[in-house]
């Protein structure tokens, strides 16, 4: 098989000074007899947005879940910042600094913004009572949430508002806010705009772009919307029937060409890819 570096040659010129965040090497996943992923290999570099596209059942969600620690690969390896990672649970991936915004957002409706952002990472009161009984320091968490989100250009209503009372766009903003607050290395976005209107979609895309440009944050985005993919992604990875069908450079492709790769109307050989 090819060396993992080959597939990223197209982007190397722009990215050779950037650190590699994620290295996926020969990852395979089988559910019983069903081969969901077959020898997937690619790298993700710091400060880029990689789009993961493909038809339903192409293996996008499986791949995202492997990176998020929900599934374990049948074979192959995952490296984060060069370190070999063997995620057994979502908690493992979170600890390394990989955050995921799931399609359903995984928010807790009756809790407020700060409680959601700090879910699983609660700040406790410093007193002995706080430590023994796990008393939450909500004042501290709300303040920090408000500061962090406004610094990240993420607009949400008061951090004390239950997320059940928010609009779809606001809820998406909270979920992304939570992910970027803790995602030191990589943020995975599963269909971040699928449930949103035109204006809210625009807000979310702008936020993601700002986070990449100003803070050098790194994203892998799953999306079915080719216009959005082409707009925000630096590189596009096409999966087809569980295989890595193509890696496309944003500046060398068009939404139409991406669709052609997804449907299989066009196929990339490793040689032609190297040239691109």
């Amino acid at each position: 098989m090819r060396s993992p570096l080959c597939e990223d040659i197209g982007s190397m010129v722009r990215q050779d000074d950037r650190a590699v965040i994620l290295e996926i090497d020969n990852v395979t996943k089988a559910f019983g007899a069903v081969q969901a992923l077959q020898s997937i290999s690619f790298n993700v570099y710091k400060g880029e947005i990689v789009a993961l596209v493909g038809d339903n059942g192409a293996g996008k969600s499986t791949l995202i879940k492997i990176i998020a620690g929900v599934h374990t690969p049948t074979s192959g390896t995952l490296r984060v910042r060069g370190a070999l990672c063997d995620f057994k649970t979502p908690a493992d991936a979170l600890q390394v600094g990989i955050e995921t915004v799931y399609q359903d957002l995984a928010l807790i409706d009756p809790l407020d913004v700060a409680d959601n952002v700090y879910l699983g990472r609660e700040v406790l009161k410093k007193s002995w009572l706080g430590r023994v009984f796990g008393v939450l320091d909500r004042t501290q968490m709300r303040r920090a949430t408000g500061e962090a989100l406004s610094q990240l250009h993420i607009k949400i209503p008061a951090p004390t508002m239950p997320v059940s009372r928010m609009s779809g766009g606001q809820r998406q903003a909270v979920a992304i806010g939570r992910a970027v607050t803790w995602g030191r290395q990589l943020i995975l976005l599963d269909e971040p705009t699928a449930a949103l209107g035109v204006e809210e979609t625009e807000q979310v895309l702008l936020t993601i772009e700002k986070l990449r440009d100003e803070y050098g944050m790194t994203f892998i985005v799953i999306s079915h919307n080719m216009q959005n993919v082409h707009r925000i992604a630096d590189r596009i990875i096409v999966l087809r029937q569980g295989k890595h069908a193509a890696t496309l450079d944003k500046y060398a492709t068009t939404p139409e060409e991406i669709v052609a790769y997804i449907t299989g109307a066009k196929a990339q050989t490793y040689e032609s890819h190297k040239d691109g």
């Binding site: 998020a68 649970t89 979502p90 359903d104 995984a106 928010l107 807790i108 809790l111 879910l119 699983g120």
Partner: peptide
Amino acid sequence: IAIGSSEESVMRAG
């Protein structure tokens, strides 16, 4: 409260 609201979300939060 969180477990009652969505077990799946709580699990994903580690």
